[in-house]
């Protein structure tokens, strides 16, 4: 028996095939760090409207090599360009780093649920991250600063391996010079003239000026770091439903059809990558789920 067709689900024709990639052209490349680079993308011709929610990701395809999920890291108000910051770790990201201005990159998205932009009004906002984890949070910082008067204190806690590994240095300098955003940096290993904090980023939570009863915390980093971050936030008295974390899983489709990103009953590509901690704490604490 044939399936029932409704106009919304009528496959070929009316709905674009979500598996098809759209080639975009690299307009500019920023070599952020030794292994990290930002690609600024635009369509080869015509208009662009890359609206997205901070925290969402795209599937990026390197011609003939493969496709990987990468968060959108640009300013959501600048809808004419698409910005992705990627760290080279393996096959696809290595090939991506070799691309030049003028080359094409395939894009599908934006996918997933982003940071809780609708929950932060009148709240203090704590952004806690390390390394490349700053990339998925940068759109959120832009978003907050564009509407600065709507929020209480904004506290950014950022950790890097060494002072040389600090991402978005220029942005951080700009943000630190503002009186309405507090940025605290720390490094695992001090080098050269570093006179700032040394130690893990989660240890900054204890001394940060925010109101635990009226804040939203957004955490992005390796799972082990997020575990400690949650513990520190809980110690400060932040309730579980005020903590948001961004999860990473293997992803082959980005749209709930390949199965790979399953995390318990959820699909990270659709139900995440950003989760409210209260919703997944039972799953999050289980090993090899």
């Amino acid at each position: 028996m044939a399936t029932q067709q409704t106009s919304k689900h009528s496959g070929t024709g009316t709905q674009p095939d979500p598996m098809l990639v759209r080639p975009l052209q690299i307009q500019r490349i920023i070599r952020d760090l030794g292994d990290t680079f930002s690609l600024i993308l635009q369509p080869p011709d015509g208009e662009a409207d890359f609206s997205f929610q901070p925290g969402q990701f795209n599937m990026l395809y390197v011609y003939g090599v493969g496709e990987v999920p990468i968060s959108i890291s640009g300013d959501p108000a600048r809808r004419e360009i698409l910005v992705h910051t990627t760290r080279e770790v393996g096959t696809v990201t290595r090939a991506m780093r070799k691309l030049k201005v003028g080359d094409s990159l395939g894009v599908r998205g934006p996918y997933g649920k982003g940071w809780p932009v609708d929950k932060v009004e009148n709240q203090d906002v704590v952004l806690l991250t390390g390394g490349i984890g700053l990339a998925p949070l940068r759109p959120m910082i832009h978003y907050l600063l564009t509407r600065r008067e709507k929020y209480g204190r904004i506290v950014l806690l950022y950790g890097a391996r060494t002072p040389e590994d600090i991402l978005y240095r220029k942005d951080l300098e700009k943000w630190r010079s503002r009186f309405d955003l507090e940025a605290h940096l720390t490094v695992d290993h001090a080098t050269g003239a570093w006179r700032g904090n040394v130690g893990v980023v989660t240890s900054l939570v204890r001394r940060s000026p925010f109101d635990p009863q009226n804040c939203i915390a957004m955490v992005c980093g390796p799972e082990i770091m997020m575990r400690f971050a949650v513990m520190e936030l809980q110690k400060r008295g932040v309730a579980d439903d005020r903590i948001y974390i961004s999860m990473e899983r293997n992803m082959k489709c980005g749209i709930g059809l390949c199965g790979h990103c399953q995390l318990g009953p959820t699909f990270v590509c659709k139900d995440g990558p950003v989760y409210c901690y209260a919703d997944i704490k039972d799953i999050f604490t289980k090993r090899e789920m």
Binding site: M1, A2, T3, Q5, H9, G11, T12, Q15, D17, P18, M19, I255, G256, L257, K270
Partner: peptide
């Protein structure tokens, strides 16, 4: 074919099945 995203390839084959 009933979620947020439709799998075209499945849908094409499925609609003509007896």
């Amino acid at each position: 074919s009933q979620g947020q995203y439709i799998d075209n390839s499945y849908q094409e084959r499925r609609r003509n099945v007896f």
